[in-house]
Every structure is written in structure tokens, then in C-alpha cells.
Design a protein around this nucleic acid. Structure first.
Lengths: 254, 254
DNA sequence: TCAACGCGTATGTCCGGACAATCGAACTAC
DNA sequence: GTAGTTCGATTGTCCGGACATACGCGTTGA
């Protein structure tokens, strides 16, 4: 008879600090995530039922459920009625977030450099005005930047922002990403609408990015909204495909 | 004095059916979503506090919160402590889901056509074996398809699947999408890892898609996992950028 | 005039319990 | 041996309440 197929129920030592300002369900979620990351909770292993887990931690079941649910929402755990909660196999880790190119690169340890080519105020064209929800011909910020890694150009970024939102200092733009400036200005980013495509480089684009005319470029257009629904940024970016591609994880909305 | 900036608190007639098998919180969520879609709840309007809403519906506050939370998770509502819950402005609607090209096109009313070029079993190369988590040289399905819209080729799709998962009938593959076949086979899709890039077309690719050699192509690689963590599909797709681009919405994970 | 304070209000967190729905496996009957 | 049934285990849904926390705004004080 072969060895049983059922994954073992793992029992690990969890604890919560009731004097901490961190919510209890969040403490639990953090510890579970750490246990998964660290390997204490192996893929496929069952988590043990919620009732007993709550008793062991001195928490109520709703609190335990809330903690588990947050990890389910992020794809780390799967619940099955009548079976239990188990750790998902494989490298299912960080799902897609709304992030800036700068943060992505920095997270990858690339130390990106930015060169601001243009930082002015211009009258909005019809398309820009429609995207940002402002009047045509009204003033908007226009920022053009070149993003470099290892001294080589990687992307050309053109952004429009409505006026009065944030102070666009060229030095700050070169030291950090646009999203950080927006967040630092008290803007709560909420969502974005993106389009990713490809096309051949024009002469100008080729020149800027160090490619040949007609070379394939990866393009991305994005409108970002804050939590009041205002459009706070319109970006038109072109990337050198040899140096950049979009990687992300998707979760099924169940 | 200008007219007040505060958005009005909208009161609409909601009701739940306790004899329905549909969960109460879900009924509430559906009705709220319908009200938003229909325009009864206008962007920016407050939803009214949860306590009173619960009382009006004869529900408990946790149930009402669960219903509201599901819409918050989908980006339709925003909660503010001390303020209330309000409808998000703008066209922030469907966030990114794990979907198939076929479903996307059909949802857009395109009626896609599929031509199966290859449908065989081949020994797995090192890369395919690593992606699918099977032994090198073991048998895997290989499917090559051409996706057409309006009689014109739009994408070339090459997929590998582990054996024994699903019966890959060529006729079915031409009538529907691969994801539907997987779901119909009882497989619960969970997540996918994607990479989107661009490159110049090779002679073969140009031939297949009706482009010139060296023309820019949009590329997508995807490994799809089911809820047990198994890799169930590896896809390598190339798209004609003049006929297809990736559009989606991102939500900030707060 | 303007800044600091306090209050009301709404959501955030947490509790303890109850019953229903579903899954898997052991058991039973044919 | 096989198919159908029963049953235990576990999550799903729902309730009613309690206190904490943060935001907006009016009031107060300098």
C-alpha cells in the first residue's frame, strides 16, 4: 500500500500581542504568511480547523477567519468546505498591484536612474483633457522622462497631470518615482486603466531610446485615479523590449 | 456662498429574500451594484451608515458589512472612517481577471474563430517540463492555434498541457476556448503568472500572422495554476499589435 | 483672524454563539 | 465488487452586541 496522499495538518506556534496596536487578525495573517514564506507551512499542508485555531490563540472565530481570509484574497491559501484550509503550491506569490516602474525596478534591486527631459505646463489637448477630466486648453503639467538602468536607456515616459495636485520638482522627479510624489502629496491612489501594446519605433523614439527606426517597442498607456475618482495622471510610456517586459500574477475572482 | 460640496446621502429601496438560497450579503451586494450600474447611486454619493442600513433591511451589521466589503474589494465603493461609504467616480469598473482571449473577444462581441494547426502529444523539452512541473521527455499535449477575427489572423497561440487533465478534441478547441474546456473538465483555475513583451517577427511568425518579417509583435507567456497549485497550462502567444492590445484595470491593494 | 480643542458620527475591530451546506470517507446493501 | 447511504468534520452564513479609532466640523480661545 502506498503512503497516504493526504497532506499533514501542520501545527505551529502562533501567538498574538493584545497590547499591540496592530489588529489581531492582521497579526495572525502576518505570522501565517511568514510561516509560509519561511517554509514552516509547506505547500498543500492543511492549516487545522478554525475553531481549534481560535481556541489555541485565544481569539474568536470571526477574527481568525478574517486573518485567513486576507491570505485567501491574496492567493496564498485556499479554503474548501468540509476539508479545511490549505497552503497553495508553487510560486503563487505577489499578485498584480498598481505600482510604478520606479518601485518595480527598485524592488528588483536595479537602482534606476531618471533623467527629466521636460517639466512644463502646457494647454491640454483634446485627448489629454478627456483623459484627465479637465477643460480643453486648460493648463496641465507635462513631464517627459528617460528611465535608465546600468547607464542604458530603458523607457521613455511621458506624463500629464492636472494642475494644483502636486508640486513637480525636477530634482525630486529624478530622485524618486512619480507615484511616490503623488502619495507624499496626500493623494490616495485607487485604480488605473491600462493598455499594453506594441509598435514600431519612430525616428524620434529610436533616437531617444538608442534603438533603430522601425524596431519593436513595448507601449503602455495608463490613466490613474485616486479614491475620489479623479484622474490624477495620464501616462504614455514606451519601453525597449530587450530591457523590459511586464510580469505579473493574476488571481481568479471567485 | 457656493453650493455645498458634500454629496447627498442617497436612500433607495432595498430588500432581501430570506427564503432564497442566495446569501443575504450577496443579495445586498447585487442590488447595490445594480443601483450603481443603473445610476440610482451616483458617483460620490454616500451610502448611509451601516447601522441604519442594517436596521432598514432587517439584517445584522456584519452581514451588511460583508456585502459592502465585496463591492469595496472590486473597487466600486470606498469606505472612509468617520465619513461613510461612497460610490467611486468615473469608469472604474471591472478589474483585471484571469480570463482567456476567447472569452475576452466574445465579451467584446467579436465572435472569434479558431483554427487548430497542431494537436498532438510530444515529449516535454526542459523548459516546458520545468514550467509544468513534469519530468523531462515525458509526454505533454501540444496545441497550436490561430485566432482570427473578421477573417483576419490576430494571434498565434501555442499551448502545452500535462497529460490526463482534459480531453483535447480538435473540434471543441475550434468551437470554444481552452479555459472553458479546462473548467468543464472540473479544473478550478486559481492563478496565472504572465509576462508581456514585444519583439520582431521571425519569418515563420510573419508568415503565419500575415505580417512582414521584422514587424513588431506583442508576446505573452503564461503559466496557469489550478487551486491545488498544479500547473495546468503553459501558453506562448504572439499577437498582431495592430489588431490586439491588453486592456485592464488595476486596483490598489490597501 | 486663526489655530487648538472637543464632540458627534461613521467605520474598524472583536467577541461568542448558532445553524446550514458541503466534502470525504467509512459503511452498508445489493 | 460496486454502488448508494450515512455520518463526522469543516467551512459558510448570520446574528446582536461592545468598544476603539479616525475624520469633519463647530466651538472656543489666543
Amino acid at each position: 500500500m502506498p503512503k497516504p496522499e493526504v497532506d499533514p495538518t501542520v501545527s505551529l506556534d502562533l501567538s498574538v500581542d493584545r497590547s499591540s496596536p496592530v489588529p489581531l487578525y492582521f497579526q495572525l495573517a502576518q505570522q501565517l504568511e511568514a510561516a509560509i514564506e519561511h517554509g514552516a507551512l509547506t505547500p498543500g499542508s492543511l492549516l487545522g480547523n478554525e475553531i481549534e485555531l481560535a481556541a489555541r490563540l485565544g481569539l474568536s472565530r470571526p477574527t481568525v477567519r478574517q486573518g485567513i481570509q486576507s491570505l485567501v484574497d491574496r492567493g496564498l491559501l485556499v479554503r474548501r468546505r468540509g476539508v479545511g484550509t490549505q497552503v497553495v503550491h508553487s510560486k503563487v506569490r505577489r499578485p498584480l498591484e498598481l505600482s510604478s516602474l520606479y518601485d518595480d525596478l527598485e524592488a528588483a534591486g536595479q537602482r534606476p536612474a531618471t533623467k527629466v527631459l521636460v517639466n512644463t505646463v502646457v494647454p491640454a489637448t483634446a485627448k489629454v483633457a478627456a483623459a484627465l477630466g479637465v477643460a480643453e486648453e486648460s493648463d496641465v503639467h507635462r513631464v517627459e522622462r528617460l528611465r535608465l538602468t546600468h547607464g542604458e536607456p530603458m523607457a521613455y515616459l511621458c506624463n500629464y497631470l492636472p494642475p494644483g495636485l502636486v508640486d513637480l520638482d525636477t530634482r525630486q522627479l529624478e530622485a524618486t518615482g512619480l507615484y511616490r510624489l503623488l502619495r507624499a502629496a496626500g493623494i490616495t491612489l485607487h485604480s488605473a486603466r491600462q493598455t499594453i501594446g506594441a509598435r514600431a519605433a519612430t525616428a524620434d523614439e529610436a533616437e531617444r531610446l538608442g534603438e533603430d527606426q522601425g524596431a519593436p517597442l513595448l507601449t503602455m498607456q495608463r490613466i490613474t485615479f485616486d479614491d475620489t475618482g479623479r484622474a490624477v495622471e495620464l501616462g504614455t510610456h514606451t519601453y525597449r523590449p530587450s530591457r523590459y517586459s511586464f510580469e505579473f500574477q493574476l488571481l481568479v475572482r471567485s
